[in-house]
Design a protein around this nucleic acid. Structure first.
Ligand SMILES: [Zn+2]
Ligand SMILES: [Zn+2]
Length: 371
DNA sequence: AGGGACGTATTG
DNA sequence: CAATACGTCCCT
């Protein structure tokens, strides 16, 4: 009863393709250098993972096939970072937007094969991958194919999408039943027995293992994961993100609006000032900048205008690359201007207004934990 | 308490 | 300038 519009299991198809797709894998995509903003971390363990490169190739193949067949995938909800990642990962001669779509079918969405929710026509999409390497690929075999234009503006949610034939310029709309039922599925928990909990978020980089030169990626196809699950598995107990393909896998669904991380990198040093190497010129004097918060927050109290906080970038939600497209925030993004609920940084949620109230060990004590 | 709407900081 | 998302106000 629920859904199962077209009984096509992506997984199955994919598998088939994989089998048939005899990639001539000649060159190995050795794209490394992603360790910029941290979200890139690698899982470090790749036991049964033969060559992820090979896998990659296969994926690409399958992807290509898919592309041929399903060119109409919706590519919404991909934050720029996601899009970017998609492109990088895909690193194929195909058009950027296309790449995104393609990857989209590489895996199964939150639907479980059992339910067959894996419809590619789904209005929402999930996406795995890296946010962006910040710099164009430094060097890499795949890079050569990239046709990325240094120019930004690439494609907006619906504008550039049409590049090649996308029919849905924007698709804001509610297809009718889709929009309505989807949210329920997501927001409501759809507990799955073996949910791997791999939403569209980035690989955690806390593990550290692996070395600088080795990016590992265990691929975990089948990503049954619901938005909720991902949300629940936030950074704290999160440990299932190790299975990421070298590229990105997007589950397509399409949905109104796309989301992009506020600062693509999304990394803030909890302290308040972020001194990342990417930052052009941090400094500035901490003294009141005159930023009156938003909406008039600062007006009342005081002088200290709190600068707008940024996502921690490490929590589960933060790792998500794309918007679910069905949550209230996503649906109201136009007016609400809020990030997808599932992507809302937990840190921000905590203090989101509560602010100062850290009932807990002072700084020094924290260290004791280690000893 | 939660969600929507709005202003606006921030970034590209 | 546009896009995105944070912070707050307001309504329910
Ligand atoms: Zn959402
Ligand atoms: Zn976060």
């Amino acid at each position: 009863m629920s859904g199962m519009t077209s009984g096509v299991c992506v997984d199955s198809d994919l598998s088939s393709m994989l089998q048939r797709g005899g990639p001539t894998h000649t060159h190995h995509p050795n794209h490394h250098g992603y360790g910029s903003q941290g979200q890139v971390g690698c899982s470090s363990l790749a036991p049964s993972m033969l060559d992820y490169s090979a896998e990659m190739e296969r994926y690409r193949s399958s992807i290509a096939s898919f592309y041929k067949t399903n060119v109409n995938m919706n590519v919404a909800n991909f934050p720029q970072s996601a899009k970017l990642a998609a492109r990088l990962a895909a690193a194929t001669p195909i058009f950027p937007p296309t790449a995104a779509r393609i990857s989209a079918m590489a895996s199964a969405p939150w639907g479980c094969p059992d339910n067959m929710n894996v419809n590619m026509n789904h209005p929402a999409a999930m996406f795995w991958g890296r946010p962006k390497s910040h710099h164009h690929h430094t060097a890499g075999g795949a890079a050569g194919h990239m046709t990325t234009h240094p120019h930004r503006t690439s494609m907006h949610q619906g504008v550039g999408a049409g590049g090649g034939g996308a029919n849905d310029g924007e698709g804001p709309s509610k297809h009718g039943h889709t929009a309505t039922s989807l949210p329920a599925a997501q927001e409501a928990a759809h507990h799955h027995p073996m949910a791997h909990s791999n939403g569209n978020f980035l690989p955690g980089y806390g593990g550290g293992g692996g070395g600088p030169g080795g990016e590992c990626g265990g691929m975990n196809k089948q990503g049954h994961a619901l938005p909720d699950m991902m949300g629940l598995s936030d950074g704290s107990g999160f440990l299932g993100g190790l299975g990421l393909p070298p590229g990105v896998i997007v589950m397509a669904m399409g949905s109104p609006g796309g989301g992009v991380s506020d600062s693509s990198s999304a990394f803030q040093m909890t302290g308040g000032q972020q001194q990342a190497s990417s930052s052009p010129c941090p400094s500035s004097s901490p003294s009141s900048s005159g930023v009156a918060g938003a909406g008039g927050g600062a007006s009342s109290s005081g002088t200290v205008a709190k600068r707008k906080r940024k996502r921690c970038g490490v929590c589960g939600p933060c790792r998500r690359l794309i918007n679910c497209g069905v949550c209230s925030s996503c649906r109201n993004r136009k007016t609400g201007h809020q990030i997808c609920k599932f992507r809302k940084c937990e840190e921000l949620k905590k203090k989101a207004g509560g602010l100062e109230r850290p009932p807990s060990v002072p700084t020094g004590e924290a260290f004791r934990w280690f000893f």
